[in-house]
């Protein structure tokens, strides 16, 4: 059996994956500016910006993400928080290329996706992303 080398190699691989994931998790990055309408989202867009969260039932960090986004939308006027069950909106999931939950999209006042993050985002990063999305108000 070749198992004697697979046994230590697998945790080594897992550690590499884990470290990369820890670094990337929740990082807010630029998005391609796809425009989403209230019809697409099934909810009204925020006056100045909208935080869209994709969640599933089998998602541990979704609850913490919900708390952060709810806090932020209560803090910043004109910002709404929409949570979408990814499973019931696979059309949107495919269209936006969502592969993980939670995925958070930051939409400007016109519904254009300006920033996105996969994994639990930090509150400060969301606030910075929002500042960017609302200051570009045209």
């Amino acid at each position: 059996m070749a198992g004697w080398w697979v046994a230590p190699a697998t945790p080594a691989l897992a550690t590499t994956i884990g470290v990369i994931r820890l670094r990337r998790d929740g990082r807010v990055r630029d998005s391609d500016g796809t425009r989403l309408s209230a019809d697409d989202l099934g909810a009204v867009l925020g006056e100045r910006a909208t935080l869209v969260q994709f969640s599933t039932a089998f998602c541990q960090p979704c609850r913490a993400t919900r708390r952060i986004l709810a806090d932020v939308s209560a803090l910043v006027p004109g910002v709404s928080h929409i949570e979408i069950d990814a499973e019931s909106r696979l059309d949107l999931v495919r269209r936006l290329g969502v592969v993980r939950t939670p995925t958070v999209l930051v939409l400007d006042s016109t519904g254009a996706v300006v920033k996105q993050a996969a994994g639990l985002p930090r509150k400060a990063d969301v606030l910075v992303a929002l500042a960017g999305a609302t200051s570009e108000d045209r």
């Binding site: 897992a14 994931r21 599933t56 089998f58 998602c59 499973e87 999931v93 495919r94 939950t101």
Partner: peptide, 16 residues
């Protein structure tokens, strides 16, 4: 080691 639930995250990929 990291608290990541790989199985949970595969769920959406499988559904997609």
């Amino acid at each position: 080691a990291f608290g990541f639930c790989l199985g949970c995250e595969m769920y959406l990929l499988v559904r997609r």
